Computed example of a mutant assay.
Amino acid sequence: MTRAFVFPGQGAQTIGMGKELADSYPAAKAVFEAVDEALGESLSSLIWDGDIAELTLTENAQPALMATSIAAMEALKAEGVGINKASFVAGHSLGEYSALCAAGSLSLADTARLLRIRGKAMQEAVPVGIGAMAALLGLDFATAQAVADEAAQGEVCQAANDNDPTQVVVSGHKAAVERACEIAKQKGAKRAMLLPVSAPFHCALMQPAADRMAEALSEVTISDPAVPVVANVLAASNDDGSAIADLLVQQVTGSVRWRESVGYMAAQGVTEIYEIGAGKALSGMIRRIEREIACTAVNNADNVAAVAADLA
């Protein structure tokens, strides 16, 4: 069996995520403590006992989701399941940072600080109300891209997330995204709806955030990953640490090529994927992309024990 570990992106956050892991595994608790120290605040208190609206703020959600994923990874390690059990790692948007941390390319403290910077920079790149994102359901990627191109009309409108064969997210100026919803319906989309997001991620409007991340990434040490990382912008694996910063900068304005990334892993012989961290959203996407891949969510102590019994 060839396995991959994948890490979720924004939207998977819930109050209480990771608490059971922290209570069950000292190594998982240590992850949250290290992230709190790196950020100079008790993010763990917000994650476990805070307000969901505050946790959902991009600058909080990004490091919080990463911390939860790495805590789950540390719990697995405590049971004898290390990163070497995977042939590939990958993550959806911010999840790529979790994947890189799990693979040893980035330290936990640096990853937390980078995601705090990334969250703030992405939020501040576009004034509230200027941008939007919308999910187009029932159109393939080529059609969704054509819809975005037609809707742009001199503004920004891009296919931002190629999630699975039935869902593409477009991003850009609000009026252009609204036009894309109407055009998509005319072209046969089952649904086209604006998403409750705070900024238009993964499009050209994020260039100020990309510039900020280039600066931040230049100040940290990035090592070769212990296992190849399937990069969002490549939809292919990379194991060269010197290329990682540029790939992460490109990711801010580029499309998240998740459908292609899963297809790439399947073509490399991956038959089992473990979703490490909050929620099960990626597992649902993966099943729609490659039905033959077995998906397992790892987000609580029972999951960890079950996976350890299979893999340790």
Rank of each mutant, 00 (worst) to 15 (best):
A103F: 03
A243M: 07
C157F: 11
A61G: 08
V227W: 00
G11D: 05
G154E: 10
K29F: 09
T68V: 10
S223W: 05
I273N: 06
S93T: 11
A28D: 10
S105M: 10
E41G: 07
E292A: 15
I222C: 06
P228K: 09
L114H: 04
V270F: 00
V230N: 05
T143S: 14
G279W: 02
Y25A: 00
P63H: 11
M122S: 12
S198I: 09
E79M: 10
N238M: 10
L311H: 02
V229M: 12
F5I: 11
A243T: 11
V298Q: 02
T2A: 14
L76A: 07
D110R: 07
K185V: 13
A102W: 00
A306V: 13
A278S: 15
L57M: 14
E292W: 04
V168E: 03
S87L: 00
A12G: 02
E150L: 13
T68P: 04
G18L: 12
R291I: 00
V249D: 01
I52R: 12
A152M: 05
V168H: 01
T68W: 05
L115V: 12
G82R: 03
E215R: 10
S87E: 15
E74M: 13
K280Y: 02
I289C: 12
L114G: 07
A146V: 00
V256T: 02
M66S: 03
A61K: 07
Y25R: 11
P228I: 04
L43T: 12
A180Q: 05
K190S: 14
A278Q: 09
K190M: 04
L39A: 11
A180S: 14
L55T: 01
L55E: 03
V147C: 09
V31Y: 04
E59H: 13
Q167D: 08
R259M: 07
I47E: 09
I15W: 01
A135I: 08
M66E: 11
V169D: 06
E155S: 05
S171I: 13
E275C: 01
S98E: 03
M206D: 00
